[in-house]
Design a binder for these strands. Structure first.
Lengths: 255, 255
DNA sequence: GCGCAATGGTAGACGGCTCTACATGAACGC
DNA sequence: GCGTTCATGTAGAGCCGTCTACCATTGCGC
């Protein structure tokens, strides 16, 4: 995936993964063996050995042929740094956003290599805020209890918010289908779940995105809308699910 | 970076990047040229051409030698999907976590390839909640105004929280340095900023992590603590910055 | 002591992505 | 018409990370 002017002396994502695996193995059972790494990372031993050699060259592990593997001091520090990014992302996705543990883990594994120091810092500040501030905790709990998060146990938004600004009768909050051609609005939320929801998200329609209704086909069903500067077509059924705040006359040339 | 049993017919991260670049160029100036891609992605034309050929093979772009490049219908849909992931992450890091725009962009670029559908969905639900629920907005605004987020314009946590549970005199909230050997606690926050803060985070010390004080050196300065099952040493100065909630006698064998 | 199973390691190949160095084409000024 | 210039494309090489197929060591049961 990369390859750039790789100066051969760099910790790549793959190596980070190996290092992290070793870290976990050592933590768990004091010693890492090739077999364990093969199993944990689901690769062949032929892939592991050169990786170990390179980690050894980088001074991150102690590795001599046919002997047990462990981390050097800098190796352990580096691994802990990677591992803590991992934990942080898991915490974000699982504990805060309510994502299933399994999936949160997968995403965290993949993303941890790309999270910058600044990203770490800002996530940490967020968690610090939650730790210190009971408002924060209340907020998260309400968020997690809410139908938006867990479609299976739907609890209405109104129940989750202390004060709900979107009165159901606000005439500016309408579904995309109710727009007139030429009108636009900003997405507030996508009603509904499952495959249709995913399709709508895949098209780039998500909260805070601006949509404009261009026209309806004569038959009425496919609607043509403009999103992110390009035109896409939607079925009525989908347009019903997209809730938005209609532009006020003021913001005619909206984002 | 990958390479797996790559069946040659797959959209890799690098290709996704090229596709997204083309999407943005087309959006901006109606047409993408090799030169623009070279410039945008900061690579050589020799790298771009084979990528274009493979994108064309995948049916994502129209490309014939020496003619202008544009997206097929599926190419545009795919690109929009990737792009919306990108935007979503930017929104998280910049608008919600208050990360500088530049850095948020970089992180988003790197991470967008690894965010799963489920991850997207959960982030979206979070933004939907914020959109719908004034509590949410208040919360974010308080978070962003808070000293934790913006070290430069420190506003005390107490000011940002409607009700602050951590009374400053809570005897269980102490700095790591005040622990007695054998005692432990859960990190609440890291005081201070800059390089020292980053060093502490790099060691894996962040909110919700459990730390136990093992011993102090005779001189008193290096402290030895146990984090994530391994022992690390800290200077007094660092220990001062780590605020934690002391274990109650109940949770003696804490996580 | 010996042989077998399991574990660890080697050789060689392949695809992906990038590069440098060079070649081709097109467009514009004159 | 022709040459210069810039954009585009080609050839070949290198590294990474994976694989398959084979080889070497170890240690354990007997």
């Amino acid at each position: 995936m990369n390859a750039a002017p790789t100066p051969n002396t760099e910790l790549t994502s793959a190596l980070e993964d190996y290092l992290e695996t070793i870290f976990e193995l050592v933590k768990e059972r004091k010693v890492a063996r090739v077999k364990d790494i093969v199993k944990a990372r689901n690769v062949k031993s032929a892939s592991v050995i050169p990786a170990l050699r390179r980690l050894a060259d980088l001074g991150l592990i102690h590795y001599t042929k046919r002997e047990s593997i462990d981390l050097t001091e800098t190796g352990e520090a580096t691994a802990r740094r990677i591992y803590s990014r991992h934990k942080l992302l898991v915490r974000l996705f699982r504990d805060f956003l309510g994502m299933p543990a399994e999936l949160a883990l997968q995403d965290a594994c993949a993303m941890e290599h790309n999270l910058s120091d600044a990203g770490v810092d800002h996530l940490v500040r967020f968690f610090e805020f939650l730790q210190s501030c009971p408002d924060g905790h209340d907020f998260i709990e309400r968020f997690k209890g809410c139908a938006l998060v867990n479609a299976e146990s739907p609890q209405d938004i109104a129940t989750c918010c202390a004060k709900l600004a979107l009165s159901p009768n606000d005439p500016n909050i309408i579904s995309l289908r109710q727009l007139k051609p030429g009108q636009g609005g900003s997405v507030i939320r996508i009603q509904g779940t499952g495959a249709i929801r995913q399709r709508i998200l895949d098209m780039g329609i998500m909260p805070e995105v601006h949509i404009q209704l261009e026209r309806r086909s004569p038959a009425g069903d496919p609607l043509w809308v403009r999103v992110q500067n390009s035109q896409i077509s939607l079925r009525k059924k989908e347009a019903d699910m997209i809730l938005l705040r209609k532009d006020t006359p003021a913001d005619t040339n909206a984002p």
